[in-house]
């Protein structure tokens, strides 16, 4: 290996170490018997046991899982429509506008989206009386709004790779556009739909800022619970929770990866 190559490889190794160091430490210390982060007090699963007895944590987690799955489902439906429109309808009035509206949520700072949506919900309640108060409904609506942009990106990338001639062949054979979409396009899109659903799900499960703005009393989500317990001082239960989430996500991504690999092969 040349000197330049060694330098390059070590730079890259450093980059990956940087990405994974905190995650690995988190996992290790979730099994630490000691309450102190820096002291190893022996192997223990007590934080996991405590976590499953923590009523407020379990409620927040259940609430977040509900929000995340409803959000992901709607985001994928709307995202698929948006992706279909953007990649198949070459020309329609307002195409650039839609493109802009689909890109902006990806980079817009959370504090702005959160504040803007809260003000919208307050005004809507004043004018049409819905949504009454703020809680799970408003959080879900807010999450769908930014998740749909991410879902559209993932699905659109896949649509760009699809073989158009399959759709054209079906249409030439007399299939109606809706039938073509359901029988040809959707099955081909399946891996992207799964990725988009998982992505929307995790984005929702991860959001603290926007949810804080649009939540009401009694609608503490999991990130809000984590945030307040981190602010109040480190609780090793957070480590245990993080490890559990990490394990589930890794499992989900691996399963999705294997399924997609099979499908493509």
């Amino acid at each position: 290996m040349s000197r330049g190559r060694i330098g390059l490889v070590s730079l890259v190794a450093f980059g990956y170490a940087f990405l994974y160091l905190p995650v690995i430490l988190l996992v290790i210390f979730s099994f630490n018997d000691s309450k102190l982060v820096t002291v190893w007090g022996g192997f223990s699963t007590r934080w996991y046991a405590e976590m499953f007895q923590n009523e407020s944590l379990l409620q927040a987690a259940w609430r977040s899982l509900q929000i995340a799955s409803i959000n992901a489902t709607f985001a994928v439906i709307l995202g698929t429509l948006a992706a279909h429109v953007m990649s198949r309808y070459r020309r329609f009035r307002g195409r650039n506008g839609l493109d802009l509206l689909l890109t902006a949520p990806l980079v817009m700072p959370d504090v702005i989206i959160g504040l803007a949506l809260l003000l919208l919900f307050v005004n809507m309640e004043q004018i049409i009386g819905w949504p009454a108060g703020r809680g799970i409904t408003t959080i879900t609506l807010a999450h769908i709004t930014f998740s749909l942009a991410y879902a559209a990106i993932v699905i659109r990338a896949r649509m760009g790779q699809l073989d158009l001639s399959l759709e054209e062949a079906a249409m030439d054979l007399g299939a109606r556009p809706f039938t073509v979409f359901v029988r040809i396009t959707l099955p081909l899109l399946a891996p992207a739909l799964v990725s988009a659903w998982l992505l929307s799900f995790t984005l929702s499960l991860d959001d603290l800022v926007i949810a804080s703005f649009v939540s009401g009393p009694g609608s503490t989500t999991l990130p809000m619970w984590i945030y307040s317990s981190v602010r109040m001082g480190v609780s090793p239960q957070v480590n245990a929770l993080a490890t559990l989430m990490l394990a589930l996500v890794t499992l989900g991504v691996l399963v999705a990866g294997v399924l997609m690999h099979k499908k493509n092969a």
Partner: peptide
Amino acid sequence: WTSFLIRVYA
């Protein structure tokens, strides 16, 4: 794919 909040906390 893992919680951003938790990674910052780590």
